[in-house]
Simulated assay, not measured.
Amino acid sequence: YRSTASNPDPQTKRKAIGLSTGEQLLAAVDQALQLDDHLRWEVQNSGIEPVPSEVPPVVPADFDWSKIPTQWAGERARTVDRLDKLLTEAGSAYEVNWSLPPRLDHRLDPTVDELLTRTITNSPSTAGKRLSDAKRHIYGLRPDPTAAYREAVRAVEEVACPLVLEKAAAASSATLGTVRNHLRDAPDKWQFVLLDNDGEGSVQPLVAMLDRLWTGQVSRHGGGRNSRDQTLAEGEAAVHLAATLVYLLGAGTLKRRKGSI
């Protein structure tokens, strides 16, 4: 599926309400990928292997395997990999996401995608799962910004609540909002790794990020005057802000000052 615009804006491309024939086809492909248990098994268990035709009949002891191209070991996974290459060559706005279950996602800048994926992989399992779900909701074939924002907030809570409010987290009473309030009201108890002009590790930068993520979730409660679903731009911003916070909090950049309780 190739966009008909010469230089389509990513936000504009994803605002169409109706589905074109090409999008209907991609939706069917996406559903087939997610429901294919054999494909899921191959991705999870078969891994990759050297392309047999590129391996010499007799392999020298000092053979450089890193120069040999690889492929998926499973036939079905190789078929989906060919689909992914066709989408790339066609300039499609979509690509195959190989996380389980495999699916079609909107194409991200490779550097941004790598950073997001690395954060998901290296995060505590619960936070990583939440962040992965948030990414799927915002970059899947049919984006759901409200769900993406919700999972982004939960991903940060998985790391921030037990770190800052351990007892409240154990009692399931801590939220991103209570974490923000504690850091804002008791800044002398905590130190951020980056120093300010006074040589102090003020937690204000973290408080500002937590506050914006928390207050920006206008879909959290229904019935309010300003309550509504999140926009696509809000969902994307929340996912990437959450990824930054999950990384920073998980990497030990926020520490309790010595002597504080």
Score class of each variant (00 low, 15 high):
residue 34 Q to S: 04
residue 70 T to C: 09
residue 3 S to Y: 14
residue 81 D to P: 09
residue 31 Q to F: 15
residue 97 N to F: 15
residue 244 T to Q: 12
residue 8 P to R: 03
residue 27 A to R: 13
residue 65 W to I: 04
residue 97 N to T: 06
residue 27 A to S: 14
residue 223 G to Q: 02
residue 136 R to E: 04
residue 121 T to W: 15
residue 166 E to S: 15
residue 250 G to C: 00
residue 256 R to W: 03
residue 144 D to E: 08
residue 145 P to V: 07
residue 152 A to I: 00
residue 133 D to V: 13
residue 212 R to H: 11
residue 261 I to R: 07
residue 85 K to P: 09
residue 233 A to F: 05
residue 248 L to M: 12
residue 1 Y to G: 15
residue 259 G to Y: 02
residue 162 P to R: 05
residue 55 V to M: 03
residue 174 A to Q: 09
residue 251 A to D: 07
residue 224 G to A: 01
residue 247 Y to W: 10
residue 108 L to V: 04
residue 66 S to F: 10
residue 53 S to P: 06
residue 71 Q to C: 04
residue 251 A to F: 10
residue 31 Q to A: 14
residue 256 R to D: 13
residue 83 L to Y: 01
residue 67 K to Y: 05
residue 27 A to W: 11
residue 132 S to L: 12
residue 112 V to R: 06
residue 185 D to W: 11
residue 129 K to F: 14
residue 189 K to T: 13
residue 144 D to I: 06
residue 146 T to C: 05
residue 211 D to C: 11
residue 74 G to T: 02
residue 195 L to A: 13
residue 103 R to F: 10
residue 61 A to M: 09
residue 4 T to D: 13
residue 211 D to N: 12
residue 185 D to C: 07
residue 83 L to D: 07
residue 202 S to Y: 06
residue 75 E to L: 15
residue 105 D to L: 14
residue 179 V to Q: 00
residue 133 D to L: 13
residue 13 K to N: 15
residue 152 A to M: 05
residue 68 I to T: 03
residue 93 A to R: 09
residue 61 A to S: 15
residue 106 H to S: 10
residue 116 L to A: 00
residue 175 T to D: 00
residue 49 E to W: 00
residue 59 V to N: 00
residue 92 S to K: 03
residue 197 N to D: 08
residue 188 D to Q: 14
residue 242 A to T: 03
residue 64 D to E: 10
residue 251 A to V: 08
residue 86 L to C: 09
residue 6 S to A: 14
residue 181 N to E: 08
residue 148 A to S: 09
residue 96 V to T: 13
residue 138 I to K: 00
residue 163 L to S: 02
residue 56 P to W: 03
residue 195 L to H: 09
residue 140 G to N: 01
residue 214 W to Q: 04
residue 94 Y to I: 03
residue 85 K to Y: 11
residue 213 L to P: 01
residue 112 V to E: 06
residue 164 V to K: 00
residue 125 S to H: 12
residue 193 V to S: 13
residue 169 A to C: 06
residue 212 R to I: 11
residue 105 D to E: 15
residue 177 G to A: 03
residue 150 R to Q: 12
residue 257 R to A: 01
residue 1 Y to V: 14
residue 212 R to Y: 11
residue 179 V to D: 00
residue 219 S to E: 06
residue 70 T to V: 04
residue 48 I to W: 07
residue 221 H to S: 02
residue 222 G to L: 00
residue 134 A to C: 08
residue 12 T to I: 15
residue 163 L to T: 08
residue 6 S to K: 12
residue 9 D to Y: 09
residue 136 R to L: 06
residue 8 P to L: 05
residue 111 T to M: 11
residue 122 N to W: 11
residue 52 P to E: 04
residue 108 L to A: 07
residue 220 R to Y: 00
residue 132 S to E: 12
residue 196 D to G: 04
residue 199 G to M: 01
residue 253 T to K: 12
residue 136 R to V: 08
residue 206 L to K: 10
residue 143 P to N: 01
residue 230 Q to M: 09
residue 199 G to C: 04
residue 29 V to L: 05
residue 225 R to V: 14
residue 133 D to M: 15
residue 22 G to D: 02
residue 60 P to A: 01
residue 114 E to A: 12
residue 103 R to L: 06
residue 80 V to C: 09
residue 71 Q to W: 00
residue 234 E to G: 04
residue 248 L to Y: 05
residue 151 E to T: 05
residue 115 L to P: 06
residue 249 L to A: 05
residue 32 A to S: 04
residue 88 T to N: 12
residue 26 L to I: 10
residue 241 L to V: 12
residue 97 N to E: 11
residue 44 Q to M: 14
